[in-house]
């Protein structure tokens, strides 16, 4: 039990620091977004392109997995489609620049290259499917 508690407190400390820093970053970034900006984005960019941009933004976004959630909640409140949100969540984690290089080290350059391409295709299709099914 002591081992479990020690593990829990160690992970909590580490996670809260990282999530706290990530939250600060995501909320600061959210402060640049307003309803008019999202409306303009929705009117000027078609849904497939919104999904593609979302996954590309996800790919280059820094930080741990959970930091996007406050930003996603803001976008959701402003009426951004679920397809775009799914593309952002998936894009953020499927391939990260840092893991790309780790995978080159372990498996050679072809493995992450193919995974990057496949992730782009699969995430795009998932975003489109969600748009048709939910939005």
């Amino acid at each position: 039990m002591q081992l479990v508690l020690r593990y829990f407190f160690y992970q909590t400390r580490k996670t809260l620091f990282l999530v706290g820093a990530g939250l600060l970053f995501a909320l600061t970034l959210s402060s640049f977004i307003d309803e008019h900006m999202v409306d303009a984005l929705k009117q000027n960019i078609s849904v497939p392109l919104q999904i593609l941009y979302a996954e590309l933004i996800g790919f280059v976004s820094p930080g741990p997995r959970y930091i996007l959630y406050p930003l996603l909640a803001t976008l959701h409140d402003y009426g951004i489609g679920t397809g775009v949100i799914v593309a952002l969540i998936s894009g953020h984690v499927l391939i990260e620049p840092s893991t790309f290089f780790v995978e080159i080290g372990f498996f050679g350059y072809r493995f992450p290259l193919k995974r990057f391409f496949i992730s782009l295709v699969v995430t795009f299709l998932a975003g489109l499917l969600t748009t048709f099914l939910i939005d």
Binding site: K14, F17, L18, G20, A21, G22, L24, F25, T28, L29, S31, F32, P62, G63, P64, I67
Partner: peptide, 17 residues
Amino acid sequence: TEVKIGISLIVVSILLS
């Protein structure tokens, strides 16, 4: 790595603000 990422995110947030 976690601490480095955390500190970097705080610094970027301050700059963005």
